[in-house]
């Protein structure tokens, strides 16, 4: 099948100036020669740590930034030479609440953007209420955006992003900062879009979100793609381990050392969560080994001990650290 988004050795550098008076120039390589393709109807996720180059990639694909090297095509059109053609068929949503006319109503915001996208007036009359309905703002369309909550603004952005009935939608962290319920309803909306044959290009920091939504995922680190695959095969990467987690006030160093010393243990990490330390052990999935470790955790009086299957997040961490 052919690709609707395609990049070839796509790269982007930034000059960054440091210092107030004497400026030192430094080059930052934000995206480092990436090559990938997205098929029609896919929900493609781009994951990676802060500063990995996700937003920069989206900006290049949405014709907002010119690549310093390489090429990218959207619907077969070149993002620099044929930017104007692309703009009619795509839309972009940058996460967060900025980018709306705060003193105007939600409806006025949508009306303005539909004009800018050349949506005929008759279509607008139907589409705007439909979109408001879709994102659950039907009753708030007349209110000034500055009175919206953050989630409402983000949903309005989704409506704005759909105003030209784009065939490809780019979303940069659309659920950032939303409460669990809000994020879930936004995910449901996004999921619903793919059934309308739209292609979605998404970035997120939430692994379960990527797992739930994406048909394929690309992992980006320091501007380079580490791996592109389905969420399922990502998880296969870590399927041969079992994960044991436990909590405690002060997990003794000796315990951690002892665990790490075991042949069968792949990885031991600790992290702080509220008042407690959380211990995570990745180990071979053999029952004996697991029982043995559980025993030692129990002896060390750790609480909340449980075993779980590896998630996308575990795969993400493994690949990032490996």
């Amino acid at each position: 099948m052919e690709y609707v988004i395609e990049t070839k050795d796509l790269a982007r550098e930034f000059d960054s100036a440091e210092g107030v008076l004497l400026k030192k120039k430094r080059k930052i390589i934000a995206v480092d020669h990436v090559t990938f393709g997205v098929r029609k109807g896919e929900l493609f996720g781009l994951l990676g740590p802060n500063g990995a180059g996700k937003t920069t990639t989206i900006k290049m694909l949405t014709t907002l930034l010119v690549p310093t090297e390489g090429d990218a095509y959207v619907h077969g059109w070149h993002v620099v030479k044929e930017a104007q053609k692309i703009r009619n068929h795509i839309n972009v949503i940058f996460g967060g609440e900025r980018g709306l006319y705060l003193r105007l109503s939600g409806k006025d915001n949508l009306r303005y953007f539909s004009d800018l996208y050349g949506v005929p007036a008759t279509t607008q009359k139907e589409r705007i209420p439909e979109l408001l309905q879709l994102v659950g703002l039907a009753e708030h369309g007349e209110r000034k955006v500055e009175t919206y909550s953050r989630g409402m603004k983000q949903r309005l952005h989704i409506a704005r992003g759909l105003i030209n009935d784009p065939s490809i939608i780019f979303m940069d962290e659309p659920t950032i900062g939303l409460d669990p319920e809000g994020a879930r309803s936004l995910r449901a909306i996004i999921q619903g879009l793919t059934s309308k044959d739209k292609t979605i290009f998404l970035t997120t920091h939430y692994m379960f979100e990527a797992d739930e939504l994406c048909t394929r995922i690309a992992l980006l680190k320091e501007g380079k793609i580490l791996k592109i695959d389905t969420p399922k095969s990502f998880k296969n990467e870590v399927s041969h381990v079992t994960i044991i987690e436990a909590e405690g006030h002060h997990i003794p160093r000796e315990l951690i050392d002892a665990l790490e010393a075991r042949q069968t243990v792949r990885m031991v990490t600790t992290s702080q969560q509220d008042m407690n330390q959380v211990l995570q052990i990745q180990t071979e999935p053999s029952t004996d080994v697991v029982m043995d470790i559980l025993q030692s955790l129990h002896t060390a009086r750790l609480s909340n001990i449980h075993i779980r299957e590896p998630s996308l997040e575990d795969a993400y961490i493994k690949i990032m650290q490996g």
Partner: peptide, 18 residues
């Protein structure tokens, strides 16, 4: 400042006309 400029720019309308 309000972050709308990027969306204007992303639209097929030209900034000049806007």
């Amino acid at each position: 400042y309000f972050g709308t400029l990027q969306y204007l720019f992303a639209s097929p309308s030209s900034l000049e006309e806007i």
